[in-house]
Design a protein around this nucleic acid. Structure first.
Lengths: 204, 204
DNA sequence: CGGTTCATTGACCAACCTCAAAGTACGTGG
DNA sequence: CCACGTACTTTGAGGTTGGTCAATGAACCG
């Protein structure tokens, strides 16, 4: 018995048929800010976007990062809530943008995409459960290791030795730790043979 | 312009038509364990269920708590993943249980419930974003206060002064703090006039 | 070569956790 | 009504871990 394919994306051509426009973003540009009203559905064609919160004193927490093919920021579209976090391109990116009304029309007329959205939102919730668990009951080293392992799994990398494309600061923002703590934890993980570090590049 | 009603529940009668059975649980009984395979859809008729993770040394983290009318544990049904947390009745409860197959049939034949599920899962993800933010960038006092405020909002209590039905330990498990920290923070919040405490009962 | 970004290290500190003990409320059963 | 057990709350003392701050080093780029 075959596992059913898990949907990760809505057909870009279908989005375009419904009037989606392309949006080109440079690394660092903002898609929307925490507190904004949600007016559009967004899906990545290429590049990467991260959603994050910022505290008054500049500390950041990364809620998640999204890559080519993935959509983000849908929940506020279905609720009448403002965005709970900001979204920023963390690489040069291209994304498809479809107004809320048109997106709802698409779902209504192509119900198969409702099931896709169910899977997508389920995956989102599931991942958030895992990371909440991760960042609560584990010590820094485990936290980081689990984060890296999870990333490796998501990236579907089957290679022995995967280069981790995040800076120490980015890992810190994901795991709710400080840079220095991440650095010290990584060097212990390296001693323990759990990760490799070759001229500052990190491998798992 | 009227805000569309936000769906929180699937019609219990419809669930029964599709063969849902009632399940009576005493306070403390387990619905499923972290790691179990998801085979059923669950929805509360009365009582309350909490989802939580436990660490080796007995520390607990509460992912969420669900009340009458709410469903829980759906994401693993739509993915092929084991439960990321355990579910336990935290009051005597009655719940409806419908097998995965039948539940999927219900959704397929009554697409309006797909949209409901989209809202339910959106709300779930949204709340998880808020609580992740809460538990990461804020100091203990704020964390607790925001948790209480969020609870008050969810409970739709319009009263001036709401009795908080959680023990200090439960608040600790939600906010990822220790009991003693919660107690000390609460007494500071009381001094600051942010909460009321009258013979150990907590009010917001 | 200068500037920028990221990584690293050390010294110090404070916040929260741990542990232990005692107090309070409440229900049960004699 | 009282004695007892249980669950929850509270307080204090002390310790540890991860955070803070400051300085330096390494890589990269135009």
């Amino acid at each position: 018995m075959e596992a059913p394919e898990e949907a990760k994306t809505i057909n870009p051509d279908l989005l375009r048929v419904y009037g989606a426009t392309s949006l080109k973003l440079q690394k660092g540009e903002i898609v929307f800010f925490e507190g904004n009203t949600a007016r559009n559905y967004y899906q990545l064609v290429s590049g990467a976007v991260r959603m994050y919160n910022q505290s008054n004193d500049g500390k950041e927490f990364t809620q998640g990062i999204f890559f080519a093919g993935e959509s983000f920021g849908e929940p506020p579209l279905f609720l009448n809530e403002p965005y709970p976090a900001s979204a920023q391109a963390c690489q040069d990116s291209i994304l498809l943008k479809l107004s809320k009304t048109k997106f709802m029309g698409l779902l209504a007329e192509h119900p198969v995409n409702q099931m896709k959205m169910l899977q997508i939102l389920s995956r989102r919730t599931y991942n958030k459960s895992l990371s909440a668990k991760n960042n609560s009951i584990y010590a820094p080293e485990t936290r980081i290791l689990r984060f890296l392992t999870q990333y490796k799994k998501d990236s579907a990398a089957l290679c022995e030795r995967l280069h981790i494309p995040f800076t120490r600061q980015e890992i810190a923002n994901f795991t709710d730790l400080r840079v220095e703590t991440v650095i010290r934890a990584l060097s212990r993980l390296k001693e323990a043979g759990k990760v490799e570090i070759k001229d500052r590049k990190l491998y798992l």
